[in-house]
Design a protein around this nucleic acid. Structure first.
Length: 653
RNA sequence: GUCCCCGUAGCUCAAUCGGAUAGAGCGUCGGCCUCCGGAGCCGAAGGUUGCAGGUUCGAAUCCUGCCGGGGAUACCA
């Protein structure tokens, strides 16, 4: 039972005597913020009182009089300006908790009307190695799939991979000119990655060489302008300082850009080998683009190479997904939609939604200067075209009712336009949602990079996490009073669970919309709000059962009464009963951090309980049994909750 | 230039479409191991929620302006 929902439904009848639509007021029934206000508080009396022109306290009192919650709660209290405070009855709590013992879903009730969801997440570009930037989409998207599915919805997780873009032109060009055939035979993925990096480096070198003089010129210009502005005496001081600030900021940006370009040049010029390659291929970027164009135009050779590369690229991705414990129902990349793009453009033009402008086919959306371009001047389609084709496919073939895009917040404008165009096109019945997330930053507050400025590869990130976790596991196990108890294989397995779990949890615990700082030390911290802490709480409970020789299945079958005699017990019980609320809130708002927060609080309340109540030595058999039942429920809540975040647990660690 | 997002404890972050005395973790300080796993527990200090106005019973949350940060902005995805 979702307690909040239950109490809301109790208020529905009394409220409907005051308003036609009680729903918005029912939403104001929520968990109490402070134990002094009970367990649940209803805050609707104040706004409602204003609407019906009555005193809020009196109104609250009247509503309470016609409210029937006596089976669940103590006598409701009206407090302050008109808050209604509800405190759950101890006997009800005891009975409700006992009823969870045999409930596999721990009180959560599946939705009555299931919807068809398509969740679009991860979506790496397959031609280049995955990096830290893909982590958030992958991890958040996976958790949302799990949550929605648990709620009872039909969910299709779709990995909309980039398998058709300019990166493939670079690979093809690299393969044709720089291939180490032996290396490709042995380790195709590594060789492809090398080719990608090489072509990318050479083409950015030429770009940099070309761009640098202009940037340096601008740098000089800005310096002059700043000098001039500093001397200017005919403008208001305020205006002048504003201008100066703006100029200085531009200066900084341009200077930074120059440094980058110089570094790109130096990297190539310091290596005779690279330099001679660069000299040999001065127009490498155009040539790579030409290879992409040929691929798109159906060139046989390039098509063959694309088909040759793709399986290895997908294998490389799969390795990472396997390690993360993430799977997709579909992997339909951009190439899949290629045959449909022509028709998309024709349809939109036919309906008068798209028009030609400056040689490109565009859709203009009110309030936006820049149009959505669905066919470029050169005739090529864009990712906007693909996104639109994808929507049509998902609606018509996958019967999608809701589509979630778990994508970087920087693409907000793109999605706003795409959704708007899709609605005009006739897909207004789809519930579109851009589940946006912020950037992963390094400890310096800038986008997370290696010391040399490269993006951090995802695989090495996972290796690092597991290695750090392993060190902690070793240290902990070696320090056990009765000597180490984990063998080599177990330690390896535990380190994997702790390391991967740590990375995922660090991501999921944050509000996804804000940027977050990637910090190894916090991620795998032995204490505090981390996956490790929750996993450890779970392992401790398992330890109790192991040590006590308790068969959990049997314990559940036999049942027993759960008595609430101390505050720590009550706190834990209330927490356990809130499991359904945490799941629903996280799923409805697409915010896994709600669930993460819940799990941390649950683990925390458990350890407080555990600290105060000596379970195994307890002499009173009924009390001991009740405590064991609480342990079992807690363990199950932690395990299931972590599972819905995509995080595993260990019996010992 | 236009548009979008953000600014909360020393640090990293919460705060469930406006609710009561703004919460956690880390760090700091102080307690707790003859006791089931101390990767732990309990407690303390720490805040004018960037600034100034406004809206109302009530504002971190909504509106306006300013300051500061980030991002997007016609043919890369």
């Amino acid at each position: 039972m979702n307690i909040l929902e239950e109490l809301r439904s109790r208020f529905r009848e009394p409220l409907s005597q005051w308003v036609d639509d009680p729903e918005p007021y029912l939403a104001m029934v929520r968990r109490a913020q402070d134990v002094r206000f009970g367990d649940v508080q209803a805050n609707f009396a104040m706004p409602l009182a204003k609407r019906v022109g009555q005193n809020a306290r009196e109104l609250a009192t009247e509503i309470v009089a016609s409210l029937d919650v006596s089976d669940l709660c103590e006598e409701p209290e009206v407090a302050g300006p008109g808050f209604i405070n509800l405190r759950l009855r101890t006997d009800w709590l005891e009975q409700a908790t006992a009823s969870l013992v045999t409930d596999e879903r721990l009180g959560h009730v599946a939705v009555s009307t299931a919807r068809n969801y398509v969740v679009d997440y991860s979506a790496p570009n397959v031609a280049k190695p995955m990096h830290v930037g893909h982590l958030r989409s992958t991890v958040i998207g996976d958790s949302l799939c799990r949550l929605l599915r648990f709620q009872g919805h039909r969910v299709i997780g779709d990995n909309h991979i980039g398998d058709w873009g300019t990166q493939f032109g670079m690979l093809i060009f690299g393969y044709k000119h720089f291939l180490d055939a032996e290396a490709f035979r042995r380790e195709p993925v590594q060789e492809l990655a090398r080719l990608y990096r090489l072509v990318h480096q050479l083409s950015s070198y030429h770009d940099a060489r070309r761009e640098l003089p202009a940037q340096q010129e601008q740098l000089a210009q800005l310096r002059k302008q700043i000098e001039a502005a500093e001397k200017a005496s005919d403008v208001e001081p305020k205006q002048r300082s504003r201008t100066l600030k703006k100029l200085r900021k531009s200066l900084e940006e341009v200077a930074e850009r120059c440094r980058q370009l110089e570094a790109a040049c130096a990297a190539v010029e310091s290596s005779p080998e690279l330099k001679s390659l660069a000299d040999a291929y001065p127009d490498i970027a155009e040539q790579a683009r030409a290879e992409t164009a040929k691929l798109h135009a159906g060139d046989e050779e390039n098509r063959r190479l694309w088909e040759l590369f793709l399986p290895s690229c997908l294998d490389a991705l799969q390795r990472i997904y396997d390690r993360l414990g993430i799977s997709f129902d579909l992997t339909l990349g951009e190439s899949f939609y290629q045959p449909m793009l022509e028709e998309v453009v024709e349809e939109l033009q036919g309906k008068g939604i798209a028009t030609e402008s400056e040689g490109a086919v565009c859709v203009f959306v009110e309030g936006n200067e820049a149009p959505l371009i669905i066919r470029k001047t050169d005739g090529a389609f864009t990712y906007a075209t693909t996104d639109l084709a994808t929507i049509k496919y998902r609606r018509e073939k996958l019967k999608a009712e809701s589509i979630l895009y778990v994508v970087d917040a920087r693409q907000s404008e793109h999605f706003r336009l795409v959704f708007e165009v899709a609605r005009r096109w006739g897909f207004g019945n789809i519930d579109f949602r851009h589940v946006r997330f912020g950037t992963v930053l390094g400890r310096d507050g800038k986008p997370f990079k290696t010391r040399s400025g490269d993006t951090v590869g995802l695989e090495s990130l996972l290796d690092e996490a597991v290695a750090r976790a392993r060190a902690i596991v070793d240290e902990n196990d070696d320090a056990k009073p009765d000597g180490p108890e984990l063998d080599e294989a177990t330690r390896t397995a535990v380190a994997e669970v702790v390391g991967i779990g740590g990375i995922k949890y660090a991501d999921l615990k944050h509000n996804r919309e804000s940027d977050y700082v990637f910090d190894w030390d916090k991620m795998l911290a032995k204490n505090g709000d981390s996956a490790t802490y929750i996993q450890y709480a779970y392992a401790r409970i398992c330890g109790i059962f192991r040590k006590g020789g308790v068969d959990r299945e049997q314990l559940r079958r036999e049942g027993g009464t759960i008595r609430i005699e101390r505050p720590v017990e009550r706190a834990l019980v209330v927490q356990l009963l809130q499991f359904p609320e945490a799941i629903d809130a996280a799923a409805v708002e697409c915010r896994p951090n709600f669930l993460a927060q819940y799990l941390f609080a649950t683990a925390n309340r458990f350890t407080a309980f555990y600290d105060e109540c000596q379970i195994l030595p307890e002499q009173d058999a009924d009390r001991r049994r009740g405590w064991l039942l609480l342990c079992d429920l807690t363990a199950r809540a932690l395990k299931l909750g972590l599972e819905l975040l995509g995080i595993s647990v260990c019996e010992r660690m």
